[in-house]
Design a protein around this nucleic acid. Structure first.
Lengths: 203, 203
DNA sequence: CCGAACTTGGCACTGAGTGTCAACTGTGGC
DNA sequence: GCCACAGTTGACACTCAGTGCCAAGTTCGG
C-alpha cells in the first residue's frame, strides 16, 4: 500500500499528484483572471492544464473549488494553530494569533497573487457564496478547536460566537487588505480588525 | 401596465401569482420533507404542484430557493425594522429588537412549520450553504440600514461587525429553538443568544 | 369584440457533476 | 526480465439544474 519509508514526508505518487493539482490550479487562476469566472467552462479549465474534464473533477470537487480550496488549506492550518494556543488565553486572542501565524508570512511573500485571489473571491457572487459556505463550516471547526484547547467535550455557544466573530474579523481584514492592494502590514490590519470587532457589540 | 387603483393593496394578478407561489412552496416543502432534498428533482417539485418545470423556475430561482426564500422575506423585514429603530440605540440592541419584532410572533404561531423549516435549512448541506450565502448578503444590508439609521453615508467596519454578530446570534437562536422543538419562548431564546454573543469577545 | 400584457408549457440547449470501464503507468516481488 | 497490483487517466454516457425562445392560452381594459 503506502510506502513505509517516505523520504521527505511524501510518496512519489503523492508529490506527483500535488504537481498536477498545482498545475491545474495555476492554469485555472490564469484563465479565470483573463476571461472571468462565469464565462469559463470546466472544459476550458481542464484543457488549459492539458488534462481531461473528468480528471479535473478528480482534483477539484467543483469549478469554484479551484479558487476556494486555497482557503480550505488556510482554514485547516488555523484550526491547528488555535488548538495549539495556551488554554488560559481568551478565545479572541487565540483566534487572532492563530490567523496571524498562518497568514501574515504567506500574504507578505505572495502579495500580488493573494490580492488577486481575495478580490476574485469577494467579488464574484458564486465564489463569495462558496466562501461564505466554507466559513460557516470552518466556524464549527474552530469552535471545536477552542473547546479541545481547554479540555471541554464540546464547544459552548459562547465559543461558537467567538469563532464566528473571529472569522468575521478575518474576512474584514482580508477585504481591507485587498482594497489597499496589499500595501499594508497584514499583522496590523488583522489586529485592527479584531480590535474593532471586539467593540462592535458594546452597549 | 400595473393597475393604478389597488383595492386591498395588490392587483388581482399579483394575488394570483402569490397563490401559485404559495402552492408551489407548500407542495415542495411537503415533498422534500418526505423524500429528502437531494433525492428530489425539480421535475417532481413542479409536478407536485401541477405545474411545468419551466414555470417552477419562473417562481423560484433555484431548487434551494423554495426553502430559502422564506428567510429572504424575513431578511427584508429585519432590514426595514433595523432602519426604523431610534438612532441613539446601540447597534446590537437595534438588531436584537428588529429580529424579535419580525420573528417572535411568526414563530409562536407557526411553531411546527418553523421548526421543520429551520431543521432542514441547518441540516441539509446544500441548504445550509445557501443559508450562509443569504446571511452574507443580508449582513451588508443590515450594516447599511444601521448606517442610514444614524445618517451615515455608508456603514463603518464596526457596524459591519455588529450586523455580522447579530446574525450569528440570530442563527444561534434559531438552532437552539429548533433543537428544543420550539418549546421555548422565542423572545427569551433570542435575548439569551444576543447576551451570550456580546460576551464572546471579552478579553 | 379586439388588442395589449402576462402567464404558461414545451422544446432545445448549455454546462456541472458522476458512474463506469478499459487502457496505461509505475512499483515491488520473484 | 516478468508479472501482479494499485493508482491514474481519458472517453463515453447519463442525470439534472438552469435558461432562451416561441407559440398558445388567459385576462382585462377600451
Amino acid at each position: 500500500m503506502r510506502r513505509r519509508t517516505e523520504p521527505p514526508g511524501l510518496t512519489l505518487a503523492e508529490r506527483k499528484r500535488q504537481l498536477v493539482r498545482d498545475e491545474l490550479g495555476d492554469a485555472a487562476l490564469r484563465l479565470l483572471a483573463r476571461q472571468g469566472f462565469e464565462e469559463t467552462t470546466v472544459d476550458q479549465l481542464a484543457a488549459a492544464a492539458g488534462v481531461s474534464r473528468r480528471t479535473f473533477f478528480r482534483y477539484f470537487a467543483s469549478k469554484e473549488d479551484v479558487v476556494i480550496s486555497f482557503i480550505g488549506l488556510v482554514g485547516e492550518q488555523i484550526v491547528a494553530e488555535v488548538e495549539a494556543r495556551p488554554a488560559g488565553e481568551p478565545p479572541a486572542v487565540a483566534i487572532r494569533e492563530a490567523v496571524k501565524a498562518v497568514t501574515v508570512e504567506d500574504f507578505t511573500e505572495n502579495r500580488e497573487k493573494s490580492v488577486a485571489l481575495i478580490r476574485h473571491t469577494l467579488q464574484i457572487p458564486a465564489l463569495r457564496a462558496r466562501f461564505a459556505e466554507r466559513q460557516d463550516l470552518l466556524r464549527d471547526d474552530i469552535a471545536e478547536a477552542l473547546a479541545r484547547r481547554q479540555d471541554l467535550p464540546e464547544p459552548t455557544p459562547r465559543l461558537h460566537f467567538a469563532a464566528g466573530l473571529g472569522l468575521l474579523a478575518f474576512a474584514g481584514a482580508l477585504k481591507h487588505w485587498a482594497e489597499v492592494d496589499g500595501h499594508a502590514d497584514p499583522a496590523a490590519v488583522l489586529d485592527a480588525a479584531f480590535t474593532e470587532a471586539g467593540k462592535a457589540f458594546a452597549l
